[in-house]
Amino acid sequence: MGLPAQSVPVHSASAGFDDFVASRPDEEAWELIGGLFVMQAQPTIPHSVIASNVERLLNDGISTSGLDLIACREVMIDMSEAGIVGGGNYVPDVAVLDEADLLEGLSRTGNCLLAVEVVSPSDLRILTGTNRPKIDVKMEGYRNLPPCRAIITVDQSELLVEVARRTEQGWSVTRHDAPEDEIVLADFGLRCTVADIYSRTPALRNALGSDPKP
């Protein structure tokens, strides 16, 4: 998520990200991306539906597989270990965490095992102060975060799911754009179709040319 590039507020990271966020209204959500303070745009309802679908599919799979993990919406991820110049605090739409790491009062974690980003049009715009789209900058950060083993990006507007997996040879990416395409991440108990991820969204209705009831 994010505002159009020309509207993204920019501040010095040295001003203190935590102090800045504490000074803002509760309804605002902010990320620290390469030293820039970036306000997240209010997500559309289809965006929220997709994120909720993914969270549910992951937690159902985690529970069925008996894994000590948990999928959470909009958790702040401390990107210190990713070596980002200027620092980073990312907020993926869904993150999978180790349940044992959850402590009372925890407001952020650096131990993100899987990050999910639902990509909206604003994510494809150039991030202020860079020559790259916001989503590209965030993807690079997740790939450089040692605990992160997988990244899922889901296009908000049309059927397109990309799954990146960390392997011994580097990152491997698969692309899925048909409703029946199966997505499997055994380490996270996930086994679903693209249609499952887009359930009850305009993108799936448009792809099927009818009003599906999956």
Score class of each variant (00 low, 15 high):
V161I: 13
L103P: 00
Q156W: 01
C192I: 03
A203Y: 10
V85F: 11
R149E: 14
L102S: 04
D123Q: 14
I84N: 00
I197R: 02
E99M: 14
V137C: 15
T193K: 08
T167F: 00
V118K: 04
P179T: 06
V85R: 15
R125G: 14
L124E: 12
D177R: 12
A203R: 07
K138C: 07
G88N: 03
I84H: 01
D93R: 04
E182I: 13
L159M: 11
G86T: 08
L190T: 03
V137H: 06
T130H: 12
V184P: 01
L103Y: 02
P121Q: 11
V91T: 14
V154D: 04
A115E: 02
P92R: 09
G170D: 00
Y198A: 05
M139N: 09
N111H: 15
T174G: 15
V118H: 13
D93T: 08
T174I: 03
S120Y: 07
G189L: 10
E162P: 00
E140C: 03
I135P: 03
R149F: 00
R132W: 06
Q169Y: 06
E182D: 06
E162M: 13
E117G: 09
R166S: 04
V194K: 08
T153P: 02
G189A: 12
R205M: 13
R143C: 10
G87E: 05
V94L: 04
H176N: 11
M139S: 09
I183N: 10
L159G: 08
G87P: 09
V91L: 14
D93Y: 04
E158N: 12
P147D: 00
A203D: 08
C148Q: 01
S157K: 15
L103W: 05
T130I: 05
L113T: 03
T167V: 06
L160A: 12
T193P: 07
A195M: 07
K134V: 06
V173I: 15
R205L: 01
Y198L: 05
T128P: 00
V163C: 08
K134I: 03
P121S: 08
D177V: 01
L114F: 13
L190D: 05
E117L: 13
T128W: 01
L145H: 01
P147W: 00
R205P: 00
S120C: 13
L159S: 12
V94K: 06
V96K: 03
V116A: 05
T174H: 12
V94P: 02
A178F: 06
D155R: 15
V118G: 12
T109Q: 14
S157L: 15
P202N: 06
R205F: 06
D187E: 15
D155E: 14
T109V: 11
L160I: 02
A195P: 01
V96Y: 01
C148G: 04
D93H: 06
S120P: 02
